[in-house]
Amino acid sequence: MEEDKIINQLKEKFGEKILDAKIQRARRVVITINRDDIYEVCKYLYENGYEYLSCISAVDYEDRFESVYHIFNAKTRVLVQIKAIIPKDDPKIKSVYSIWKAADWFEREAYDMMGIVYEGHPDLRRILLPHDFKGFPLRKDFKLTPAQWFEKKG
C-alpha cells in the first residue's frame, strides 16, 4: 500500500516530529506537524516524487491556525495533506516558495485572507483585496460591519 509506505517513510525520517498520521481514504494521507518542520517535510516529500503542489490553504480554529498543504505524487497517486499547526498569537511559518514556485500566490492569498506571515516569501503582499485593507476577512473574529472605504491609490 502506497499510503502506508509514505507514512512509514515520513515517520522513519522525522520520528516524533510527525504529530499525527492517518489514511483518510484511498489515495489520501493526512499528517499533522508543527510549523517549524514544514520546510524539511516539504523538501523531503518533493525529493521523493511529490512534485505537485496542489494547494496551500489556511484555516482558523479556535485554538490555532493551520496552514494546510496538499501535495500530490502522480506516480504513486497519493495526495498527502500536511497540516502545520501555527499558534494564534504568532501567525508565522516558513515559506515553501523556494521548493515550489507555485506556492507564490497560494501563500499570498493565505496571508491576504488569514493573516499568516510566510517568512522568506519574496513578495508577500495582499493579492485579492486592496493593499490598504485592514484586517483579515476569513478569520472568525473579523467584523463584516462597518464596511471599509478605500482611497484611490496605485
Binding site: 496542489s54 494547494c55 490553504s57 484555516v59 507555485a102 500566490w105 497560494f106
Partner: peptide, 25 residues
C-alpha cells in the same frame, strides 16, 4: 477543501483551489 465542524449546517471553512488562479500565478 471543505471542513465541517459537525455542529452546524454551514461549512466551517471552504477553500476553492481554482485552476486559473494557479495558471495565472
Amino acid at each position: 477543501y471543505l471542513i465541517s465542524d459537525g455542529k452546524s449546517d454551514k461549512p466551517y471553512r471552504i477553500k476553492f483551489r481554482t485552476p486559473a488562479f494557479a495558471n495565472l500565478a
